[in-house]
Simulated scan of single mutants.
Amino acid sequence: MNEAEDLHPIFTKDPEEWMQFVYKKASIDYNLVSLVTDDGVEHVGLVYTVDPVSETFVLVNFDGEDVKVNIVVGHCVKAVSVLIEDSEMYKQRLDRLFRPIAASKMTEEEIRNQQTVVRMWLLKNRLPVEVSGPQGENLSVAEALVIQPPYGPDNCVSNNEIILGKIQGLIKNMPSDQHEW
């Protein structure tokens, strides 16, 4: 066995290989039919995400108002095939499913406007803030804190409790009217 075979796939697979499945309708099967896993069951659903370390898929199925989330553990997956390529058809519905309730009630335009307002407030308070994330959906403050949609105090993520508390307080005390700045 050579050294490359000893490495975990996280070190040998390009993340783009996993991203090609996100928001697509995929079929994951456990036998050698179309998608293969080791118990002979075929799983079909919309791929919300794939964990690149465990190679685990999170599949979602919508049946009217009912939603079924299925987690298929990576070591069982033998093959994956994409059934529907149109990712935009499902993207918004999947994103709304996993967003906080406040964010799911907001339109994309309202979320972008809120991002701009919070960004401007942080800049006014002389904090280094940048737009970050794969689709520019997050705000990054001094590379120490991330603010996710809908950009409220509860949407701040940081390992530094002091910075987290300060930024959350700043956002809580942000005037509702921008003209008061």
Rank of each mutant, 00 (worst) to 15 (best):
G152Q: 12
V53C: 02
H75A: 10
E88C: 04
R99T: 10
N61M: 01
Y23Q: 08
I111V: 15
P134W: 06
Y48M: 06
N138L: 13
V47T: 07
V67D: 08
I167Y: 06
D177K: 09
I162W: 02
N138H: 14
I28Y: 02
V117F: 09
G64I: 06
I111N: 06
K105N: 09
S27Q: 06
I101A: 13
M120S: 04
N113W: 01
G64H: 02
I10N: 00
Y90T: 04
T116Y: 05
L94R: 04
C76S: 04
I167G: 09
N70L: 11
V141I: 15
E180M: 14
V129I: 13
C156V: 15
V36K: 14
W121A: 04
G74K: 05
D39G: 03
E110D: 10
Q148W: 05
E137C: 10
H8W: 10
Q20W: 07
E42K: 12
V117S: 05
F62A: 01
K105Y: 10
D38A: 03
D14T: 12
A79C: 00
E3F: 14
D29I: 00
K124W: 09
M1W: 08
V33I: 08
H179Y: 11
E55G: 06
V77N: 01
M1V: 13
T12A: 10
V41R: 07
Y90F: 15
D6Y: 08
N61R: 11
I84A: 01
V129F: 05
I163V: 15
L7Q: 13
R112T: 00
R93E: 10
L139H: 11
A103Q: 08
Y151I: 07
L127I: 11
P150L: 10
V129K: 09
V82E: 05
D6K: 13
E130W: 07
P100T: 10
V33Y: 02
F62C: 00
M19C: 08
E55Q: 14
I84C: 02
Y151T: 01
Q135T: 08
M106N: 01
I84E: 15
R93Y: 02
I147P: 03
K25Q: 09
I71D: 00
P153Y: 01
K13V: 15
E3T: 12
D14L: 13
V67C: 03
F11T: 06
N160C: 09
A103R: 12
G169C: 12
Y30M: 13
G45C: 10
S27C: 08
K91R: 15
M1A: 14
